[in-house]
Simulated scan of single mutants.
Amino acid sequence: MEKTVIKTGATVDEAIEAALSELGCTKEQATVEVIEEGTEGGFLGLGRKDAEVKVTFNSEEAAEETSSSAESDDTYYGDDESFEGDAVSEAEDAAANFVAEVLSGIGIHGNMDSYREDDTIYISVTGSDCGAAIGRHGETLEAISYMTNLIANKHSEQRVHVYLDVGGYRKHREQVIKGLADKAVTRVRRSGRKVVMEAMSPAERRIVHSYLQDVPGVSTHSEGVEPNRCVVVTPVEKK
């Protein structure tokens, strides 16, 4: 299926990058037509004109190219076979292509598996030196996940959620968070007082709330302002 967008920017390259980001594809997968080169203008930028480009992405051709190069070690590819043909959603394709482009751009190469289950798209990337895509306390991974969710939902009529894990970080972090939650519950039961956990991202706080929602004797809520917002575990009086 062919998609076309027209974008402007301070330079031609800026306009092209904006178009590729919206389409969720690489420059190699797209046809670029420069409508306006743009000019810098004179004193204080007076008379400056933005560059304007028309970028077209053919998802079917891109899928064929991905299939033909799937054996390369430096190429991301999804090898899950539970979805074939029309069952592979456009949103999943767009999300996977975007993640592959971003990670390739920061020099991370490896294998990528993706599949869709109900309204969730799962993307898992494995490879060496994935640290640059994770960042301090997973901040970079959260940023990539946020952008990937935006891309996926632009290509879906129904709301979808992308669960992205790189180098197994999210799975490992989830286990650590659950361990911290267990310790917080133990402290609450021993002291009878509320326990404020460490500052966490919104996604990590959701893990705690979900994990402890059925635990008897405690309740949870969040307090504070980002990025220092924390989960508070509070004792619940028995009736």
Rank of each mutant, 00 (worst) to 15 (best):
C130G: 06
C130E: 07
A132C: 08
A133P: 10
A133H: 08
A133Y: 06
G135D: 08
R136K: 15
H137I: 00
G138W: 04
E139Q: 12
E139Y: 07
A143N: 10
S145T: 15
S145A: 15
Y146M: 14
M147I: 13
M147F: 08
M147W: 03
L150R: 10
I151C: 13
N153D: 02
N153C: 04
K154N: 15
E157M: 02
Q158F: 01
Q158D: 00
R159M: 00
V160K: 03
V160L: 01
H161G: 00
H161W: 01
H161E: 07
L164K: 09
D165Q: 02
V166L: 07
G167A: 06
G167W: 03
H172T: 14
H172P: 00
R173Y: 04
V176N: 13
I177L: 12
K178F: 05
L180C: 01
L180Q: 12
A181M: 04
D182K: 15
D182M: 08
D182I: 07
K183A: 14
A184P: 02
R187T: 12
R189E: 14
R190T: 12
S191C: 07
S191M: 07
G192D: 03
E198F: 08
A199Y: 11
A199V: 10
M200L: 15
M200T: 07
S201K: 14
S201D: 12
P202Q: 14
E204H: 10
E204G: 12
E204I: 09
E204T: 09
R205G: 08
R205Y: 07
R205P: 06
R205Q: 09
I207P: 11
I207D: 11
V208E: 13
V208R: 13
Y211F: 15
L212W: 10
D214V: 08
V215I: 09
G217I: 02
T220W: 01
H221T: 03
